[in-house]
Every structure is written in C-alpha cells, then in structure tokens.
C-alpha cells in the first residue's frame, strides 16, 4: 500500500485534484463550525459563559498538534524502513505546518486559560507541557534538517529525531501527569467538561474535521512544491553537466 503512494508522479496526479478538494472541504467545514460556534450555539454557564466558544478554534488546533506530530513520525518511520521518497517529502512538509498548529494550540489555550483559570499558563498541566515540548521537537526537527548539507542527510537525521521524539512524547506526558498529581492544590478546570452536549459536539467535530482537511491540503501543496523544486534542481544539474 505504501509503495503505491511512493511514486512522486502518482502523488502529483492524485494531489492535483485531491488538494483543491481538501481546501474546499476544509474551508466549508471550518466556516460552518465557526458560524455555529460563534452565532448559533447557546453559551454554557458551566464552562464560564461565552468563553467556551474558544473551543471551536482551540480543540481542533490541539488535535492537529498531536495528529501532525504522529503523522510526521509515521512518515519518518516509513521513510526510514522503506526509503520511499514521498514519505520524506511528506515529513518535511508536515513539520512547519505542524509547528504552526502547535503554536496556535498553545496561544489559544493561553487565551482560554486567562479568564477560566486566571492564568495564561499552567505549569502542572500535562497536556500543556506535552504540547509545548512537541513544539520544541518540531523546531528541533526543522533546524536539524536545515543544518544538513544534502537532502539524503536531512531526511535521515530528521527521521531519527522524529522517531526518538515520538517515543518521548508519551513519557513527557506521563511524567508531567505524575508531577500534577502531587500538586493537588492547583485545581485546574478541565477544558472538556464531564459530558458535552450534542449541540456543541457537531460544530466541534465540523471544525476539527475542517482543520484536518485544510492541514492535509496545505501539506499536499507543500509536497507538490518540494517535488517540483527537486525536479527543477535535477534539470538544472543536468543542464550544467551537459552544457
């Protein structure tokens, strides 16, 4: 199955129509989710009134922060084992976009935290800390790739780091969880309450799905750019060699 996607030309043909479709689906779903979230759904007094509307931006970005890191690690793994070039192109394309959505999750989380917890930041919340260190892992990945001389070196070093990071993210989460359980006095209002009413669920799902589609679309465009840049570089190299 991986091998089918491993052909860059096949990927270019596929993404030629899939990327625009993802842009359209993503935009529509996000727009519907935001419209519902901001205008239609009633405010939830249990969650502190209107502020829970932040959820329709924050939860999708937090979900994408985790999903994008997992995707990058999975693509790195595929490249490392099978050396499918498209997997490396994908991992490289995911990194900056994943970093953006992770930063978005942190920023919107801080904005939500201020009126609900009274602070912008909670050191003893495992989710916050895991996402923060995932952001650092993204930055390290981008910096490491940029520091390498050749594409092959960048791919290999990046793959190793992404996989080492992937086995560490659960550890980080667990360690901060333990840290939190020892600081009982800091009572954190959990972002997602005990049960979520269906009226919030559909707009939230729509937003999350929309962000995922948009993310997928952006990754595909970035991959197309990368593949074209590689082709251009190859043609130029041939011309130099021939002329």
């Amino acid at each position: 199955m991986f091998s089918w996607f491993a052909n860059p030309s096949r990927f270019m043909n596929l993404s030629n129509w899939l990327a625009p479709a993802c842009y359209a689906a993503g935009t529509l779903l996000i727009a519907w989710g935001l419209w519902q979230g901001l205008w239609i759904v009633p405010k939830d007094d249990y969650q502190g009134g209107d502020i829970m509307r932040v959820m329709f931006v924050h939860v999708p970005s937090a979900w994408l922060a985790m999903a994008s890191y997992s995707a990058m690690a999975a693509m790195s793994f595929v490249w490392f084992i099978w050396r499918h070039e498209v997997a490396d192109v994908a991992a490289k394309a995911i990194a900056p976009l994943g970093a953006l959505w992770t930063a978005l999750a942190l920023a919107t989380g801080a904005i939500w935290g201020k009126p609900t917890w009274g602070t912008w930041w909670q050191w003893d919340d495992a989710r916050l800390m895991s996402v923060l260190f995932m952001f650092f892992l993204f930055l390290g990945y981008i910096a490491l790739r940029a520091a390498m001389d050749t594409r092959q070196q960048a791919a290999r070093a990046g793959a190793i780091l992404a996989m080492v990071g992937a086995i560490n993210v659960p550890l980080i989460h667990y360690s901060v969880d333990l840290f939190t359980s020892l600081h009982q006095d800091a009572s954190v209002v959990t972002a997602d309450g005990p049960k979520m009413a269906a009226v919030y669920l559909w707009p939230l799902l729509s937003s999350a799905l929309g962000h995922s589609f948009l993310f997928a679309a952006l990754v595909q465009t970035q991959m197309r750019t990368e593949i074209r840049e590689r082709r251009t570089a190859r043609i130029r190299a041939d011309l130099m060699a021939g002329g």
Binding site: M129, F133, F136, L137, L139, G140, A143, L144, L161, V164, G165, N168, L171, I172, Y174, S175, V176
Partner: peptide
C-alpha cells in the same frame, strides 16, 4: 534544541 525536550521526564 534537540536534546532539551528529551531531558524533561
């Protein structure tokens, strides 16, 4: 940049 996140646990 690479190592500090790994130091956390």
């Amino acid at each position: 940049l690479i190592a500090l996140p790994l130091y956390v646990p």
